[in-house]
């Protein structure tokens, strides 16, 4: 008996190893190794290669600090906007109780099948001075809007590009909340807002957290959207890092700044996760 169990366990282990090996190889080659290189470059000096923290300290230079602050501001704004748009929409979708939710998901996924750059450039044409929106406005005699090449345009671009990443996880979680839970709350006398606030919201937190992460991280590090819609007017931290690699040819500084950004994202995520866990303790469960 014991022997057999041992053999089974061994077989299981082997199977696990085999099944996971493609991904393990992938992650060693394309995630861990590059990460090690980023850490190595980030913590060594450009001349000589001795250990140094200089590359990390670069973030305190006024220019870099300003771009980081601006990047955080814009990405926080777009993340919040995404949440405010996505949550009610996900709620509405849930209450529709569609038989095949595949269709609904398709509606959000469809634009993502087109290249993300292409869609951003399309926004440029829409928002331009002589673009689609302004043509329509002036056709009906209204004054032109001046959105292109401003932070507003960048936030708009981020919200548009990353909204599906917020909707899908929230919708997934909401659609799994059983009707019986809600009916039970209603039976016990809760009104709609109490149900929303004290039942649905706490239960959907994992979806919100993963949505926040999936929108915040790419917004914080993007340099393409700010290039295309900001008209080079708005310098974000992602662009600064790109320049360190390509123009200054200073990989150490680029990696150093990337490390700071990574740590920054870790901290932000830890705060969100912690808040998530804390509130779970005080929830109805």
């Amino acid at each position: 008996m014991n022997k057999r169990e041992g053999r089974l366990a061994k077989q299981n282990k082997l199977r696990q190893l085999l099944l996971s090996s493609p991904y393990v190889l992938w992650s060693i080659g394309f995630i861990i190794l590059p990460l090690v290189m980023v850490v190595y470059y980030g913590l060594t000096s450009r001349d000589g290669g001795g250990f140094t923290l200089e590359n990390l300290k670069l973030i305190w230079e006024p220019t870099h600090r300003a771009t980081l602050i601006l990047s955080v501001q814009l990405s926080v704004i777009s993340t919040i906007l995404c949440l405010l748009i996505a949550y009610p929409l996900a709620l509405a979708l849930r209450s529709l109780r569609l038989k095949s939710n595949g269709f609904v998901i398709l509606l959000f996924m469809l634009p993502m099948w087109m290249n993300f750059l292409l869609r951003t450039i399309a926004w440029q044409n829409i928002l331009e001075k002589n673009g689609v929106i302004n043509m329509l406005l002036s056709a009906v005699g209204l004054p032109k809007l001046n959105i292109i090449n401003t932070p507003t345009a960048i936030v708009l671009g981020m919200v548009y590009d990353f909204l599906p990443f917020m909707i899908i996880p929230i919708y997934n979680v909401l659609s799994k909340i059983g009707d019986d839970v809600i009916q039970a709350a209603a039976d016990l006398g809760a009104n709609y807002f109490q149900i929303l606030w004290r039942v649905i919201l706490p239960l959907s937190k994992p979806g919100i957290v993963s949505g926040l992460t999936m929108v915040f991280v790419p917004s914080l590090t993007t340099f393409v959207i700010s290039d295309i819609l900001g008209g080079g007017n708005i310098l974000l931290i992602g662009k600064v890092i790109e320049q360190k690699f390509k123009m200054a040819n200073d990989w150490n500084a680029g990696c150093g700044l990337s490390l700071v950004l990574m740590v920054f994202i870790f901290i932000c995520m830890a705060i969100v996760q912690k808040y998530d866990k804390d509130s779970e303790g005080t929830s109805v469960w």
Binding site: P62, T63, A66, T67, L70, G232, N233, L235, V240, Q243, M247, A248
Partner: peptide, 10 residues
């Protein structure tokens, strides 16, 4: 040059 340019941009 890059530093000055970025200071301007920021």
């Amino acid at each position: 040059y890059l530093e000055k340019w970025n200071e301007m941009k920021a």
